[in-house]
Design a binder for these strands. Structure first.
Length: 601
RNA sequence: GCGGGAAUAGCUCAGUUGGAUAGAGUAACUGGCUUCGAACCAGUAGGUCGGGGGUUCAAUUCCCUCUUCCCGUACCA
């Protein structure tokens, strides 16, 4: 990612100013070094933004303490005109040079961009090279299996990354890769055809779930019949099913086509509910045959070896073991398909970078696939990245569709919606339309579920406990949404009161003198840097933490400072403007997490 | 065995290029709605950052080592 780093206007101003001063004292230094060095003081008592002087100690051959105090004295001695208007005062505090900012300047420089009609603030401009066209693949559920809460982590993570990359200016293609072929499908069809006694639901929406349950039954039955006379018969049927699926015709093939749709409908419904959109759907079934042909071609070229009747590559020199590509029966594997798929992605979409959001258990798989692509001479092998996250498990261990110990995603959704309706929305029953109540419950449920998934760092596993998830107090999606709703309500009520002063004059930011007000202004200015950091590190959790902090600060301000009954119209209108800024940033931030921001709830 | 990851308050988690007094939520206790929405706010209490070494002016953060747990390790995906 060859691009210039985004620097917020405050740090840019301060570092250019500081550079002039430091260069005079003889230290080798650059704007870049300075910009990265700023940090937040532990308390606002110490200043608004801090500049640690440690890194200058070597080149200046002086103690950091001394450097800080010299810099502070130099700045104090400057005539006002030689100082940026943004800086009110610079004070040394131990090895730190702490700046106090002019809040009026901060308001006009940064906060008013948020309030612009075209929301200038949220359009970060990055100079330098164009950003690579990036494909992000996520959500690879199997058809014929049940969707569980683990799939939701992947969905929330992938979708948020799409939104973060787009916000940061990347051209992005979102894609999904459902597993619609394989032995799990064969098992399910076997049961459907030969043993299914359960009634098929009449409504299409229920059939995907039904199919998932059938799969579990099928797996159990096959396990039970191992070692009995039925075993070899079962195996023959499964082989026959796979053969028909491969050939593309026959009774089992027709049953596959029909039942596959049931699962796909369930996926589409989940994506719709979650407000997740894919630009491209790839299916395992469509890359299956071509992938086998591709491997055979390279086998002839002598790239792969035959071993124990199968075909693969020995990657042990790269510590990646042996990568199997064709089974002894001639069929391909997961890795085989991913090789063909990688080729297609770059060719069909002219992408320059390809990210796979898949759980950590596939790390070796992707390392092997990318290595094989490299050996095949695929130029873009180095542009493929596996973004691993740890998976979701239950208090009593890993989830397994085979064993049937999973929490279906629909169960979480239904319970969450029910909870929100019964505990919070009941009070609006005769005031709001049923449509609005349903929509609000839906939006808050999205907030609770997605935020719950995204706030945990991707590389940490999530132990899913439904009762815990249904507590939505404290740090949660609904907390942020509630803050947004309350601000919206406040603005609607109070805005008319200050309409006159708002129209006639500039926003009197200088009237904001309370600690909680200063803290909010500074926090708002951080937004874009947090978002970029979240994108660069592929961590939506950074945005979660930021939004939570912002809400915490706002709710503290809300409790202490009245907007409607401020001491003067100037203070009131400045507080109103501040509230509007917070609302805009919350709305934008939530949208990066794929979470709606309700106006009331 | 080898490879990868994790260990921070009772519980769930932040703490990212090493920096000022390690922070939230939750559970426990206390206070705050006649006042802009209490899905809220404020306070008390809770820590040898798994153990031990090392590098550094400075280590939860980097290096080494040990312990415990999780994942992966050719015909499943």
């Amino acid at each position: 990612m060859q691009r210039q780093e985004y620097i917020d206007p405050i740090k840019k101003d301060l570092s250019h100013f500081l550079l002039g001063i430091i260069e005079k004292s003889g230290a080798a230094c650059s704007v870049d070094m300075l910009q990265k060095n700023f940090c937040a003081p532990p308390s606002l008592d110490l200043g608004h933004i801090a500049f640690p002087c440690f890194f200058l100690a070597k080149s200046l051959k002086k103690a950091p303490l001394q450097i800080a105090s010299t810099l502070a004295q130099t700045i104090a001695a400057l005539p006002a005109a030689a100082r940026p208007t943004l800086i009110k005062q610079a004070k040394a505090e131990g090895p730190y040079l702490n700046f106090y900012l002019d809040l009026k300047e901060l308001g006009t420089l940064v906060l008013e961009q948020i309030l612009q009609e075209d929301q200038t603030f949220f359009k970060i401009t990055i100079s330098g090279q164009a950003l690579p066209k990036t494909m992000i693949e996520f959500s690879q559920p199997n058809t014929h299996k049940e969707l569980h809460v683990g799939h939701m982590r992947n969905l929330a993570l992938g979708d948020s990354l799409i939104r973060l990359y787009r916000y940061c200016g990347f051209p992005v293609v979102s894609t999904t890769f459902p597993g619609d072929v394989g032995t799990h499908v064969a098992k399910c069809l076997w049961y459907l055809k030969h043993h299914q006694k359960e009634a098929i639901p009449t409504t299409m929406e229920k059939r995907g779930e039904f199919l998932g349950k059938i799969y579990t039954l099928a797996h159990k039955k096959l396990e039970e019949e191992l070692g009995t006379p039925l075993e070899s018969e079962n195996r023959e049927i499964l082989t026959q099913i796979l053969k028909e699926l491969h050939q593309g015709h026959g009774e089992y093939f027709n049953l596959w086509k029909e039942s596959r749709e049931w699962s796909l409908l369930q996926m589409r419904n989940l994506y719709k509910w979650s407000d997740v959109h894919f630009d491209q759907w790839y299916f395992e079934s469509e890359v299956d045959a071509p992938s086998v042909a591709l491997i055979k071609k390279y086998l002839e070229k002598g790239l792969f070896v035959q071993s124990e009747g199968a075909v693969g590559v020995d990657l042990s020199s790269d510590n990646l073991g042996f990568c199997l590509l064709l089974k002894s029966d001639g069929n391909g594997l997961y890795a085989t398909k991913d090789i063909e798929l990688a080729r297609r992605k770059f060719e069909e979409h002219k992408i320059e970078k390809s990210i796979y959001v898949v759980d950590v258990r596939q790390s070796l798989h992707f390392a092997q696939v990318f290595k094989v692509l490299e050996l095949m001479g695929f130029a873009h092998a180095k542009d493929c990245i596996h973004l691993a996250y740890d998976f979701v498990e239950l208090p009593d261990g890993a989830m397994s569709s085979r064993k049937g110990n999973i929490v279906p995603i629909q169960e979480l959704i239904d319970e969450m919606v029910k909870l929100i309706r019964n505990n919070y929305l009941l009070q609006y029953e005769n005031l709001w339309s049923e449509e609005e109540i349903a929509r609000t419950a839906h939006h808050v449920a999205i907030g609770a579920i997605k935020y719950g998934m995204l706030r945990i760092d991707p590389q940490r596993k999530i132990v899913f406990d439904l009762p815990e998830w249904l507590k939505i107090d404290g740090e949660s999606g609904p907390y942020i949404q509630y803050s947004h709703a309350r601000i919206s309500s406040l603005i609607e009520k109070v805005a008319p009161k200050y309409a006159a002063s708002a129209n006639n004059s500039a926003i009197p930011w200088e009237e904001l003198k309370e600690r909680s007000e200063e803290a909010l202004m500074l926090k708002l200015a951080d937004f874009n840097q947090v978002v970029i950091s979240a994108q660069e590190n592929n961590r939506p959790s950074f945005v979660c933490a930021y939004l939570y902090d912002l809400c915490k600060l706002y709710n503290n301000f809300y409790a202490e400072c009245s907007v409607a009954h401020a001491a003067s119209p100037e203070i009131g209108s400045a507080r109103l403007a501040l509230s509007k800024c917070v609302r805009e940033v919350l709305r934008e931030g939530l949208s990066l997490l794929g979470i709606p921001a309700p106006k009331r709830m």
